[in-house]
């Protein structure tokens, strides 16, 4: 048996449109568009359309906020109290004042770097570490500035630390009797040198009253009885040591001397009181033999 009508043989040729479509699909740019640009455009356009409505936007923002707070407000992340270590009471109080936190607060809401900078910004604080300790404690470790000298500035007394930074102003010199005093403009920039001078005073320590910065360039050591040792700009310590040596040798400072001028180190000069000058003249006259 053979079929009445032979089945029509399928034409292997693609139809014109199938051919064009296949060529289009083989175009690199078109394929890229289809694979990348189109999904992007659809996603972006859909999202834009959806968010075009204010209510949906609000809902979305609210949802995001809720989601965030549900994580942030967990018990594990809450900070309940603040501990300040290494600070005296007054400074600790200041720190609590400049960090207005009402506990409990989430650790996500604490900006530790900002807090640290705020604390370091206080005069009395040299450095600080801020961290959140386990157990919900905000731990603040403070290193305070140590005042080494009282500086009589233009208007008031100030405590200065070794780096010349103001620790705090004080009302009375008598509150800090153990600290040396210095005066004069620009003295705070040379605290280090001043401390060296004071430490090399040696036997003069008990007569020492203070240091004065003269003309923002050199030091005067002020002793009791208003005696002054005027030191040069450079080599001040050495000059001071020479004065001490002279004092030891001839007890110079015990005499009626107003000032020892060491500003020219090779030519120490003494200034003596008026009475002493007259006495000196008198003795000279006797020596010369002019006894009128």
């Amino acid at each position: 048996m053979q079929p009445v009508s032979a089945p029509k043989k399928a034409d292997p040729a693609p139809s014109r449109w199938a051919y064009r479509f296949e060529r289009l699909m083989l175009t690199p740019l078109f394929r890229l568009t289809l694979r990348v640009a189109l999904p992007f455009a659809v996603t972006f356009g859909g999202a834009t359309l959806w968010f075009a409505d204010q209510d949906r936007r609000d809902d979305f923002n609210l949802m995001v906020y809720d989601l965030r707070s549900s994580v942030v407000q967990r018990e594990e992340f809450m900070v309940k109290l603040m501990a300040v270590d290494g600070a005296t009471d007054g400074v600790a109080e200041d720190i609590r004042e400049v960090l207005p936190l009402d506990f409990p607060v989430s650790s996500f809401d604490l900006d530790l770097d900002r807090m640290r900078e705020t604390i370091v910004g206080l005069d009395a604080v040299q450095s600080a570490q801020v961290r959140i300790r386990s157990g919900g404690v905000l731990q603040i470790d403070v290193v305070e500035r140590v005042p080494v000298v009282v500086w009589r500035g233009r208007s008031e007394l100030e405590l200065i630390d070794r780096e010349g930074v103001l620790v705090r102003p004080i009302g009375s010199r008598l509150d800090y009797p153990h600290l040396p005093v210095m005066a004069g403009a620009g003295a705070d920039l040379h605290v280090e040198e001043a401390m060296t001078l004071i430490s090399s005073l040696g036997p003069l320590m008990d007569r020492f009253r203070g240091l004065e910065r003269i003309g923002e360039r050199r030091w005067d050591v002020v002793l009791d009885r208003s005696q002054r040792i005027m030191l040069p700009e450079t080599g001040a310590v050495r000059a001071l040591e020479r004065v001490i040596a002279m004092d030891r040798a001839v007890e110079m400072l015990d005499r009626d001397v107003v000032a020892v001028d060491m500003r020219l180190p090779q030519r120490p000069t003494l200034r003596i009181t008026d009475g002493a000058v007259k006495e000196l003249w008198r003795i000279r006259a006797i020596e010369v033999g002019d006894n009128k």
Binding site: D11, A13, P14, Y19, E22, R23, L26
Partner: peptide
């Protein structure tokens, strides 16, 4: 159509 067939297959 024959050319189309050949070209399409080669392109593919």
């Amino acid at each position: 159509r024959a050319i189309r067939t050949a070209v399409q297959a080669a392109q593919k």
